[in-house]
Design a protein around this nucleic acid. Structure first.
Length: 736
DNA sequence: GAGCACTGC
């Protein structure tokens, strides 16, 4: 038999890749006959592993509804599928679809492709790997994935997992997404900005492409809302495979939720059977604090309780520390002593992004930090706020992955039913959407006011976005995309930053501005370990540029490159190596896009007094709407909307210049400007006279200063014209 | 003299 297999392989190899799908029609369909020996995708004999996995796949809940699903897909253009955790939808549904497409196209030899979107890169990558394994093919061949910085697909790829943002990018060059026959939007209930834009876009595209099938997959009952949105598309429910989780509520409202959470941890650890604990808190400081207290309290019990491994978990934790959540619980201290337990104290990251097996107890105070955008003040803030019922259920589900579990909700049952929203407010209603608007314009959506969003953004947010894009020159007064806007829309940057990058070659500083853009696109690169805060601050001071934080970032990048991207140089200087490496990645990607638009890379002579002036002018060309003025009172006021703001203490800019531009205005304990640079008033009216036009300008010191600057500029212009006319009339100078 | 929920292009 082994010999026979080999022969077949040889035969297919000679024929070549292209012909394989056609030749394979001689093989039996895997789903109908598991005994077929040859993999139709690559003509190779199936490995034993394939059969082993196949047996497991068949036990997934979604397999029982395979025929039902395929029939519904055949009869409808759009299908909604609700499948809870463990249903197998993400790995199996795309394979079911693939099987039908392959059957349909066997004789016609058509090319076809399926896309399956994921909100996160890691998921796109790991699910693609898993499915390639299940299909017994090499990753990147028939099954691949596409995420930023990494395209793992080939001409043979028929099933592609990709991030939702990546599919949006593809739509920018291929508005009808012509290469796909079926698009599957997974985790649609998370309602990320990109998913919401895709929902609206695909609904639109389907009108022009009746052949394009869409499967919207969701884990919650919000699916019924999707059903309404897609005009009654059929809804299929697939059961999940979780163990039952018992829910407990508190009798009364707990006002100190951290204290209540710690108390609950101790109670579980001292009184409940073995099993790990997952606690949800809101932020880094709170989590570190709680971990210390839990360790201390458990320590007080001595040997009467089991040993505990207490680990924090949040996104900015270094990966090596994050790995600790997968360490096994400590073993008993004595043969008959109490069992050890792992206690994980985490942010929302454990709600969706990371799954940890072995959790039996979940403690949920019902809160999370969430981003909120106020279009009136244009400020994004992080606010601790109640989670939704959907989130609460997701959290409790984390207790039932490996065995029946318990979830302790630190709020009353009444407040769960009456106080919590059923679903989390979609991101599009909580964010600045300038970038989204630009993307939609590029996708050919002209009328945004009437665009069919599932949940439209607030009108004022839309207005703010259009206003910003118009001031930047990305949209004309009719709201049409300009050539500049087109270029900016292709850059994976916020529009202000895109503008400063596009303008930078004209100011002869695109190399430097490109580096600054890259540094602003990655997380904070400065490391400040609790045990070496002073040394870290001193290291940071060595990079400091007197004119501000943007130029400090440029210094860091330059030093990093001058030291040959050296990892030990990074740790000696308290900068994060991974972050700088990814800045380098971003820089390369941006440079490629610039080359496509013939934007040249150039620098002003480092010794020229214009070296930094040009860079700052380029920054102003994009960020002229983010300027603050120092009043005589000693406070900074944002220009035009006159909000009192403070320079963030992390800023190295300590001489309080009269005018500053800032990258971010955030509200935390105060109104802070983060990443700030010194600029000159004259440049404001030079770089953005249309914005600083003084008509409709609110009365404030900034206005009076600008008035003086305008007058000075006029006088200068007068003198120049006089000089000019004198010269011309005297004939000493000929204007050519 | 303060902080950084989480993603994504």
């Amino acid at each position: 038999m082994g010999v026979k297999r080999k022969r077949k392989v040889i035969m297919f190899d000679v024929v070549g890749d292209r012909a394989i799908p056609k030749l394979n029609k001689t093989n039996c369909d895997v789903s109908n006959n598991v005994n077929s020996l040859i993999n139709r995708w690559n003509g190779r004999a199936y490995t034993q592993r394939f059969y082993d996995i196949l047996e497991k796949r068949k036990t997934l809940p979604v397999w029982h509804q395979k025929e039902e699903f395929l029939k519904a897909l055949k009869d409808n253009q759009t299908l909604i599928l609700v499948g809870e955790t463990g249903s197998g939808k993400t790995t199996q549904i795309p394979q079911f679809v693939l099987e039908t497409l392959e059957l349909e196209s066997r004789d016609k030899c058509n090319k076809y492709m399926i896309a399956c979107t994921q909100p996160r890169r890691v998921a796109a990558m790991s699910v693609a790997r898993r499915v390639a394994e299940e299909m017994d093919v090499n990753i990147g061949e028939q099954v691949g994935y596409s995420i930023r910085f990494e395209d793992c697909t080939s001409s043979q790829t028929v099933l592609k997992y990709l991030t939702d943002g990546m599919l949006l990018r593809e739509a920018m060059t291929d508005p009808l997404l012509g290469r796909y026959n079926v698009i599957i939007l997974d985790e649609a209930h998370e309602r990320t900005l990109s998913t919401d834009v895709l929902l609206g876009l695909l609904k639109e595209v389907q009108k022009n492409r009746p052949d394009l099938k869409l499967v919207v997959m969701s884990a919650t009952l919000e699916a019924e809302k999707f059903q309404g949105y897609f005009c009654g598309a059929p809804l299929m429910k697939v059961p999940g495979r979780l163990h039952p989780v018992e829910i407990f509520y508190t009798q009364k409202y707990e006002d100190d939720y951290v204290e209540a959470a710690i108390r609950t941890v101790i109670q579980i650890h001292t009184c409940q059977p073995p099993g790990d604990i997952l606690v949800f808190l809101t932020g880094e400081e709170e989590i570190e604090d709680a971990c210390r207290k839990i360790k201390k309290e458990i320590g007080n019990f001595g040997d009467s309780v089991g040993p505990a491994l207490v680990v924090p978990l949040y996104s900015t934790l270094p990966p090596a520390m994050q790995q600790k959540i997968f360490d096994p619980a400590p073993s008993r201290l004595m043969p008959n002593g109490p069992a050890g337990r792992k206690i994980i104290v985490s942010t929302n990251i454990a709600e969706t992004s990371l799954t940890i097996d072995g959790i039996v107890y979940v403690i949920d105070p019902g809160l999370a930090k969430r981003k909120v955008y106020n279009p009136r003040t244009r400020v994004e803030s992080l606010i601790v706020s109640p989670i939704s019922k959907a989130s609460a259920n997701q959290r409790s589900g984390r207790a039932g992955r490996t065995q029946p579990g318990k979830c302790f909700r630190l709020y009353t049952e009444k407040s769960f039913h009456n106080g919590l929203q059923s679903e989390t407010c979609p991101e599009i209603q909580r964010s600045n959407i300038a970038n989204t608007v630009l993307t939609l314009k590029k996708l050919g959506i002209d009328d945004l006011v009437h665009f069919d969003f599932m949940d439209p953004p607030a009108p004022e947010t839309l207005m703010r976005a259009l206003e910003l894009l118009n001031y930047l020159g990305a949209l004309d007064d009719e709201g049409n995309l300009t050539r500049l806007g087109e270029i900016i829309s292709e850059l994976p940057l916020e529009p202000q930053m895109g503008k400063m990058l596009v303008v930078s070659p004209e100011l002869n500083c695109s190399n430097e501005v490109l580096s600054i853009c890259a540094m602003l696109s990655v997380p904070n690169c400065f490391v400040r370990p609790r045990k070496a805060q002073k040394a870290a601050d001193e290291a940071k001071a060595r990079f400091a540029h007197i004119d501000g934080d943007h130029l400090t970032l440029l210094n860091v990048y330059h030093d990093y490159k001058q030291n040959n991207d050296d990892q030990s140089w990074c740790s000696e200087n308290f900068v994060n190596y991974r972050v700088l490496k990814s800045a380098d990645n971003v820089r390369q990607q941006l440079a490629c896009i610039m080359a496509r638009f013939n934007l040249k890379l150039c620098s002003t002579d480092l010794n020229s007094r214009n070296y930094y002036i040009n860079i700052k002018k380029a920054m102003l060309s994009g960020y002229f709407m983010q300027v603050a003025h120092l009043e005589r009172t000693g406070n900074y006021l944002t220009v035009k909307d006159n909000q009192v703001v403070h320079l963030h203490p992390s800023s190295r800019l300590n001489h309080k210049p009269e005018w500053v531009i800032y990258n971010e205005h955030v509200f935390t304990s105060k109104d802070f400007l983060r990443t700030v640079t010194d600029v000159r008033g004259e440049w404001l009216i030079d770089m953005a006279p249309h914005y600083f036009d003084l008509v409709n300008f609110p009365h404030c010191e900034a206005k009076r200063v600008l008035e003086k600057l305008y007058k000075k500029k006029e006088r200068k212009a007068d003198i120049n014209t006089k000089k000019l006319s004198f010269r011309v009339t005297s004939g000493t100078c000929i204007l050519v």
